[in-house]
Design a protein around this nucleic acid. Structure first.
Length: 592
RNA sequence: GCACCCGUAGCUCAAUUGGAUAGAGCGCCUGACUACGAAUCAGGAGGUUAGGGGUUCAAGUCCCUUCGGGUGUGCCA
């Protein structure tokens, strides 16, 4: 029996082909195949309903006609799949136990699953812009989501065949450097002698500098002048700036290693400082940019809120009235660079939801600009997320007005997980308990952030981020650990082929096997609009099916054929869970 | 003022983008360790999807409206 790797897609295309040759349908008919509620079958097609309505025919009759044609065509082997008409005109597809079992035998390794997924992004050159933190600032709770969501999306794209460049577009050229340099010079600070806590000191120096400016407004002129000096290449200020950037990079690298953030290139805003003039020239030359109140701006009259005749005008400001560049100028220069240097097919930006207007303006501007110049326009998308809020529903701050430091969150995660593992498994060595706590604690934190729809805001709570029960990373990790434990006891390599298995019998075996087939569909759905929570939901459901199976059907039984088939299910579950966890940036464990 | 987003079980969230009887976790109640790891499993109670109107064979999802909350709104990024 030849089974479909991706039944949902296979059914869709077979049915389309059959409909094209069947009277009453047409080329504009789409079957609309999707996974179904298990009580109806494995997949359902609901395209007949809308199509029948549009053409004024009875949907049940039309559905039956399609089923008959499908069976006559011979493309739907009755040994593999059973078709039936239901309700107002749904077509249900129920895969046979033989199909489901054969699927487990044919597709078994991570490489098999990956080869099925590779077509999804097949060789596309994708630049992903993340995590793009600012220099000279300690990472706080607000940096959690870019790092966690960004790495999961990057790993997904990579797994699904993208030719990926992770670009850390750091903010290293902002106006804050004026204040920072002013304060550093005023206090005579030697940046090279700050040691391990250099970033903490820089963070404090900036805060103190800002406070000082509030007290003594005349200092603002000094700061502004320091910035101008820096931008004009003054050697002393450039040297200070380089040290600040270097200190930040060292701190980033340390944090990235803890968070599992991978970066391919780091080209900050400063990299584009000599590339913005071309932007001003080109946008002016094609008549897109114009002067307004001394600044260079772009209007988008076709979008109401960006139109020039609004009561409160809202242009895309690409050069400040003092002649300096800003966020918009460097972003435009960056897109051009990504086209010319990397030949990008797609650019994905990751920021919080509050920047939606900026990206809408950026994309509109780029589209018109590239069209006028005849440049190839990459697909541009803005992947955004909601804010982490405090109990007052405002962006989260502690009582003293500070944000929680990301390092503090990581330490708390490890510490809580260490306590739990020590309680559950006191016999493990301390070193191993620390390793487990790392994966469980940090994994729980990441999973908590990934498992709900990223566009929603949520209220911060330690228990929310560091829960270890229910739909959490430890639940998934625990299932992997139990599978590993079985293979250790049986003395079999979970990666090795298992022979002599009999067909599936119990309901729990079959439910698990069906769930295993859904991995690629889950990846597709996740990739569709880059929402990792779809993958989380799938992995949770898979684990739940495994846990039911584990409790109902003993693996280590005397009957070798039964043992073999259950070991196969364990091995497949282990592979999918490990692969899925790695995609989410969570490290699977041998034991916990 | 204008624009956009949100409101689902006591709490935290799903719902494959318009599909069949709205699902999970936590908490609560009842059971299962002399069975491969109980960080688990089996079961139960808990809903007028903020209110009202409309479109549709079909609405938590689309449209209108009221109420409640959030975000953005010219030189920060």
């Amino acid at each position: 029996m030849k089974v479909w790797f991706n039944p949902s897609k296979a059914i869709e295309s077979e049915l389309s082909a059959i409909a094209a040759e069947t009277e009453g349908f047409g080329a504009d008919f789409t079957p609309g195949v999707r996974p179904a509620d298990p009580k109806f079958g494995d997949y359902q097609a609901n395209g007949v309903l809308g199509f029948a309505k549009k053409n004024g025919v009875n949907p049940r009759e039309l559905g039956q006609k399609l089923i008959d044609a499908a069976i006559t065509s011979g493309r739907f082997d009755p040994e593999m799949v059973e078709l039936s008409l239901a309700g107002p005109g749904f077509i249900n597809f129920k895969l046979s136990p033989a199909f489901i079992w054969q699927w487990q035998l044919d597709f078994s390794t991570k490489a098999d699953y990956q080869s099925g997924a590779k077509a999804l992004k097949g060789g596309r050159k994708i630049i992903i812009d993340y995590p793009s933190a600012n220099t000279a600032k300690q990472a706080h709770i607000g940096h959690l989501r870019p790092m966690v969501i960004g790495q999961a999306i990057a790993r997904l794209l990579d797994f699904c065949g993208a030719n990926l460049v992770r670009d850390n577009h750091i903010g290293d050229w902002g106006t804050n450097f004026g204040t920072l340099i002013m304060k550093i010079k005023r206090d005579g600070i030697d940046l090279s002698s700050l040691g391990d806590d250099a970033l903490v000191t820089l963070d404090q120096l900036y805060k103190d500098g800002s406070a000082l400016e509030t007290e003594q407004p005349e200092l603002r002129d000094i700061s502004r002048n320091e910035l101008v000096l820096l931008q004009n290449g003054d050697p002393e200020n450039t040297a200070i700036w380089q040290q600040i950037v270097e200190i930040s990079k060292v701190a980033f690298d340390k944090l990235f290693a803890q968070m599992g953030v991978e970066v391919d290139i780091t080209l900050g805003e400063s990299f584009y400082r000599d590339k913005v003039d071309r932007i001003y020239d080109e946008l002016s030359e094609i008549g897109l940019a114009e002067e307004s109140d001394g600044a260079l701006v772009v209007w988008h009259d076709e979008v109401k809120k960006f139109a020039r005749d609004n009561e409160r005008p809202y242009p895309f400001n690409i050069r400040k009235s003092d002649g300096a560049s800003n966020y918009a100028s460097t972003d435009l220069a960056t897109i051009l660079y990504r086209l010319e240097e990397f030949d990008a097919d797609e650019v994905i930006y990751l920021t919080d939801a509050r920047q939606q207007d900026h990206f809408q303006q950026l994309f509109l501007t780029t589209k018109k600009w590239f069209q006028a110049k005849g440049y190839k326009l990459p697909e541009l998308s803005h992947v955004f997320w909601g804010t982490i809020l405090g109990a007052d529903k405002k962006p989260f701050k502690t009582k003293s007005g500070e944000s929680i430091k990301l390092q503090e969150l990581l330490d708390e995660a490890r510490s809580r997980a260490f306590d739990v593992v020590t309680e559950k498994n006191p016999d493990l060595s301390e070193a191993e308990r620390h390793e487990i706590a790392e994966s469980v604690g940090v994994g729980a934190m990441k999973y908590a952030d990934l498992s709900s729809n990223r566009t929603q805001d949520y209220v911060f709570s330690w228990d929310r981020l560091l829960s270890f029960e229910g739909n959490t990373a430890p639940y998934l990790l625990y299932a992997v650990a139990r599978i590993n434990s079985i293979f250790r006891k049986v003395g079999v390599d979970p990666e090795a082929p298992i022979e002599g298995a009999s067909q599936l019998e119990t309901d729990t075996e079959q439910a698990l096997a069906r769930k295993l087939m859904g991995f690629v569909t889950a990846l597709e759905l996740t990739l569709n609009d880059l929402r990792p929570h779809f993958l989380c939901t799938y992995l949770y459901e898979l684990t739940s099916a495994y846990s039911s199976f584990y409790n109902a059907d003993k693996v280590m039984v005397d009957d070798d054929a039964v043992k073999a088939r259950r070991l196969i299910l364990c091995a497949r579950t282990r592979t999918v869970l490990k692969t899925g966890l790695e995609l989410l940036g969570i490290k699977p464990l041998e034991r916990m």
